[in-house]
């Protein structure tokens, strides 16, 4: 398992450099925005989800899976390593976005109605949502392969937005701030649980797949 993770870090190293460069650029842009902190957490989390997906693309390109399985590596370990990778990436993303956002906030001055508490809530929500995407996407990738998943991925990203628009059009009002905050407090645990379920589904899917 550690070998597989090590492999993922090696192959993502170059990509990470590109992404960091892009991130630096976005941080610069963000200083001109109304709420830079939220923006920074948002794209760093997005980068982390993308990197998980990219590791699958690189594996597919190299025809890695059949080779990995010709070694003393079980299918469970391959699945587990990807879930672990995404968790590490999401946490690392959070660890990076936190100090960077704070630094930018300090530079640009406080945002009206967006104090430390709001910032923390929005960060937790964003990271949880990113990790929720992982829970939905990984079984799909293990089922259909990453190439076929590209379209599904867009749908998965677009669905919540579409749902929100539909709800607001239907006249459903936004929940109160208090209930939203209560929900966000529960969110991390909920998403971790969902990932656990997702992991077992992926193991089943991948164990049955012929390679």
């Amino acid at each position: 398992m550690i070998g597989l993770l090590l492999k993922d870090f090696y192959i993502l190293k170059q990509y990470l450099k590109t992404m960091l460069l892009m991130a630096a650029f976005f941080v610069l842009i963000s200083t001109g925005l109304d709420n830079p902190a939220e923006f920074i957490s948002g794209f760093i989390v997005l980068i982390c989800v993308m990197m998980t997906i990219t590791s699958f693309s690189y594996d597919a390109l190299a025809n890695w899976e059949r080779y990995a399985l010709s070694m003393p590596v079980t299918r469970k370990e391959i699945v587990g390593s990807k879930y672990l990778l995404s968790l590490i990436l999401c946490l690392a993303g959070a660890a990076v976005s936190f100090p960077v956002s704070l630094a930018v906030l300090k530079m640009t001055g406080p945002v009206e109605g967006f104090g430390m508490s709001e910032y923390l809530y929005s960060s937790v929500a964003l990271i949880s949502i990113a990790y929720l995407y992982i829970a939905v996407l990984l079984p799909l990738i293990f089922k259909f392969g990453v190439e076929k998943c590209r379209l599904i991925m867009i749908a998965v990203f677009a669905a919540p937005t579409a749902a929100l628009i539909a709800l607001s059009k239907a006249g459903v009002s936004m929940p109160s701030e208090a209930s939203l905050k209560a929900f966000i407090q529960l969110l991390p645990a909920l998403v971790i649980l969902l990932n656990l379920v997702s992991y077992f589904i992926s193991v089943r899917i991948f164990s049955a797949r012929e390679i």
Partner: peptide, 22 residues
């Protein structure tokens, strides 16, 4: 296999580290 299964952006040195863990 008929085709190399190593990622193009890896180095033999890194492969040794990975396989050493496997």
């Amino acid at each position: 296999f008929d085709e190399s299964s190593f990622h193009e952006n890896m180095k033999p040195k890194q492969i040794s580290k990975v396989l050493g863990r496997i």
